[in-house]
Design a protein around this nucleic acid. Structure first.
Lengths: 229, 229
DNA sequence: AAGCTTATTTGACAATTATCAAGTTAGAGT
DNA sequence: ACTCTAACTTGATAATTGTCAAATAAGCTT
């Protein structure tokens, strides 16, 4: 791997505080690889041989069961995925595929576990990371169990607006069918949910979204930090 | 706290490997308390002042949003809950109430974080614990998104049977309305799901359940380790 | 054991969500 | 720009799930 790339990886929360020695042994056998869009990187059930890091592009984490498929998360640069499986030596619980052309770094799981054993700072970083993942998972489950799909969409839009510096206009970060899957509904249902949010000032044109009546939308969606982070 | 009680706590995974010194400082300001059933121990949104440990009884973790409530997990002895919030100094994302008369130990969060900083073994144990929690959360979300409520119930029954040494007869561990909430449905829906599973050999009488046609039930439920653990 | 409260079940109905089948639109590749 | 494929939308319908109300059953208290 090139020095530039190493530096980029070093910057993520997971590696920020670890020793140079740990970082070196962690990345010693690592390698980066470019993937075209829509390539399946791992399949749920596989043994966790690598910890993955997205350098550029994006990765969709999804799962299948009996003809159904659902997106559980999307990973954006620069961050790792599949950490919990790596640490616990368990099989992956999610499959992963590139959402677009992506540069991916793979660290052998054995090295990750080794470093985890030896470098207390690394262990601490992993704790923070996992705690956040876990809490994100709780939030996701709360949304699914407490809200209707229309409410989930409304809150997603509000949240996305906030992330874009509170802009009332922004672009959806990914395809609608993936958004639908992430929000736990079918594409048809998402389409209808968008249509029915029109009366709350939600306009959609392709990937462009504008929220023209924020107060009304918020009153309907009832966002809360305890679900929407 | 009594020596007996301390010993009991020392035995859980989280504390098994930590130094005596760490354990002492962790429990130095801890205290145990008996609670009657149905007492709310914490409320979502509260700052995380304590790490809790269930010594006996049980604790339900739940959340509310706009008139709706849902159970996210039930904690059985002897284990901790609310660890992620404690570590990340975030507000609790779930409320907790006793499901029955329960003995609860409370460790000041500050002490937990202190020990986490100083004892690498504790950090490692926390990692394993959080990784497992996280994975349990993923499984829960997968079940909710990929399965119907009837399928979730069928799988829950199969799993519970397995936990009871593969018994085809067992007692439900908690009330049906809580089971319903945990499985993401209303009590009425649970009742009907049970009724409709009758043709797959599921008999229910109060808390007693018997699974008289396991092959048929399994064929319908399609359990998998990637969701049902 | 009687009485009271709460949990569970059942029925009728409504809301939500999914499925299937066309259309329409948008985007990628040539 | 053209073609082709895939994504998205819309309509019609079905399945799933929730709500409300009432009846029954179970558990607790006295």
């Amino acid at each position: 791997m090139t020095p530039d790339r190493l530096k980029e990886i070093r910057g993520i929360d997971l590696f920020k505080n670890i020793s140079d020695r740990s970082f070196a042994s962690l990345t010693q056998a690592a390698y980066a690889q470019n993937f075209p869009p829509n390539v399946e990187l791992i399949t749920e059930g596989d043994p966790s041989d690598f910890l993955y890091i997205v350098i550029s592009g994006s990765v969709e984490l999804f799962a299948n069961w009996d003809k159904n498929e659902t997106t559980l998360a999307t990973v954006w640069p620069v961050s790792s995925f599949i950490l919990a499986a790596t640490i616990n030596k368990g099989p992956y619980l999610m499959s992963a595929r590139t959402g677009e052309k992506s540069l991916i770094v793979m660290l052998p799981s054995e090295d990750v576990r080794q470093t985890f054993e030896n470098d207390p700072e690394f262990a601490k970083s992993i704790v923070s990371e996992l705690a956040e993942y876990y809490r994100a998972g709780i939030r996701h489950a709360k949304g699914l169990k407490l809200r209707t799909s229309k409410e989930r969409l409304a809150n997603y839009l509000i949240k996305t607006g906030k992330k874009n510096d509170g802009a009332t206009q922004f672009l959806l970060k990914y395809e609608k069918r993936r958004l639908a899957s992430y929000l736990g509904m079918t594409p048809e249902n998402l389409s209808r949910a968008f249509a029915s949010l029109k009366e709350l000032g939600v306009r959609v044109d392709g990937q462009k979204v504008s929220l023209d009546n924020m107060p009304a939308l918020i009153e309907f969606a009832k966002p809360t930090a305890l679900i929407d982070g």
